[in-house]
Design a protein around this nucleic acid. Structure first.
Lengths: 294, 294
DNA sequence: AAGTGGTCTAGACCACTTT
DNA sequence: AAGTGGTCTAGACCACTTC
């Protein structure tokens, strides 16, 4: 009988029990007033109430992971926009009915994944691609000598097309779905160094035109984030060495057959959803691809 | 008067004060018996007593960073060897006279840097290159199709030489210092795919011969770790596209001029000390260099 | 049952930023 | 002074592994 509510394996319940200086009522040990017990958004063994679909099965996940998911949802939904301040740890703890430490651990992971940035004394901010330090997160090509700086873009082509089979497969679309195709050349100090082709889902990037790309100053990912509400948060890249074909040779002003670094990159937004395919050819005679292994 | 010891900015002191249910002696609030106060290895604003050299200046560093440094020293000194179990968090907390939470945070970071591996219920182990999961930490070349597996090695040359200027510079040696030079070809499914040259400091790798390399089965880093007490913990890599020269073409059985991926990699051991220079040429017609950006 | 890491809470204080 | 994140402690309980 006193185990009436003990099947709640929620850690928070146990912890609240530790606050039990209210244990002056030995007669009804199980009769804890519901109102005095903090009600976390979820128990350890169940999914967060607000979580839509997906996890109907008994999913084991620590509280802080559930909080992390909730915060991520707010990021995804645009409740807090890139560059903005999110609520303080104390406030979030209150909202989710958990301790500050738990919120802290959730935010720690989000910061490690570059979704948010902490600044002591100021607060926690939503990461944005409109920042010097974010500019080279996905562009690893740096000059052999001198300081890295952002290249200039010249757009060769921007059009709406139907996705070829290989593109569709990589972007989780159906073959023939509408996509935006972009081709551009990038210059470092006036030297053409990168030629790349991009594919973006037409549905999300409706209204993306050559004009908007040209007039926009700054990294393309900044434009995507601000104008299309789509933020790239990670990418997977495959690199090869290839020979320059006629097209690349002309655009990069190099000899046919010059070795180029080929990169095929798929970028993902929240929920591991692929939202960009990028195929680039890098001239590596005065630049190199820098990678840190750990 | 009761602030007699408040100029001690050590957090531990403050926390110990919180244990003050011993506050039955209001007459002498500042007279806390020294023996009852845990004496951390260091205060927040000073360097750990055991730390040799380097930080004589007033160095600000959180306790857990100091603990992390102490643990790293024990790893470096070989007190706990690769693959071995390190003392439990509780034990380390006792040794360093800090709370388990502080040790925990220190180990969290070491685990994030792949220096140790935690296993719930078992303990924390020193990372080792003798493990399946470690094998591809530094080798990012994976087959376009099929499951990655470790290549076979064929050694072309192993000799003691004097370090050329460029090699010496990258490895923090003096030009002319003794180094071990290794040249080998690596095969995937019998297909020659990688030709690479390695330079290792002669002082550290004294006694490294072709025989020992050939007879040793498994990753070279495993051999280095076990036989020479030198563990690679991170590396910095520069990648380019180049054309196969005569030597590479012959070893890889390809046409002269075939595009190859060129990698120059410097590997570091504890204390960010460079201990290996590796220059590789990768054939990327059936393999690619895989990189995750985040 | 005992020991390990993993989670969660609560409360203190510190360092930094802004008002 | 007030608010934020950053550090540190203490203690509880959970999940997993081993004896």
């Amino acid at each position: 009988m006193n185990s009436a509510s003990s099947n709640l394996t929620n850690n928070a319940t146990a912890a609240s029990g530790a606050v039990s200086p209210t244990a002056g009522t030995p007669a009804t040990p199980a009769a804890v007033p519901a109102s005095s017990v903090p009600v976390p958004v979820a128990s350890v063994n169940t999914t967060v109430a607000a979580t839509p679909a997906v996890n109907a099965s008994p999913t084991f996940s620590p509280l802080y992971q559930q909080i992390k998911a909730l915060i991520t949802q707010s990021l995804q939904s645009g409740e807090w926009k890139p560059g903005e301040l999110i609520p303080s740890e104390v406030e979030l703890a209150g909202r989710f009915k958990v301790s500050q430490g738990t919120v802290r651990k959730a935010i720690d992971e989000l910061a490690a994944e570059n979704l948010v940035m902490r600044r002591q004394g100021k607060g926690t901010f939503v990461s944005t691609h409109h920042e010097a330090r974010a500019h080279f997160r996905f562009l690893r090509l740096v000059p052999d000598e001198g300081v890295p700086h952002y290249p200039e873009s010249k757009f060769i082509e921007v059009k709406r097309v139907r996705a070829p089979a290989d593109v569709a497969r990589l972007m989780d679309l159906k073959s023939g779905d509408a996509v935006i195709f972009i081709k551009r050349v990038q210059y470092f100090d006036g030297v053409p160094t990168i030629v790349e082709e991009l594919w973006l889902p037409g549905l999300i990037f409706k209204g993306l035109t050559a004009e908007r790309l040209v007039e926009y100053k700054g990294p393309m990912y900044g434009l995507f984030e601000t104008e299309f509400g789509t933020r790239m948060i990670r990418a997977s890249e495959q690199i090869r060495a290839v020979c320059a074909d006629a097209g690349a040779a002309q655009l990069l002003n190099i000899d046919l057959g010059t070795p180029l670094l080929s990169s095929e990159r798929v970028s993902f937004t929240y929920g591991d959803k692929p939202v960009e395919l990028r195929r680039g050819l890098y001239l590596t005679s005065r630049h190199h691809y820098q990678n840190e292994l750990s």
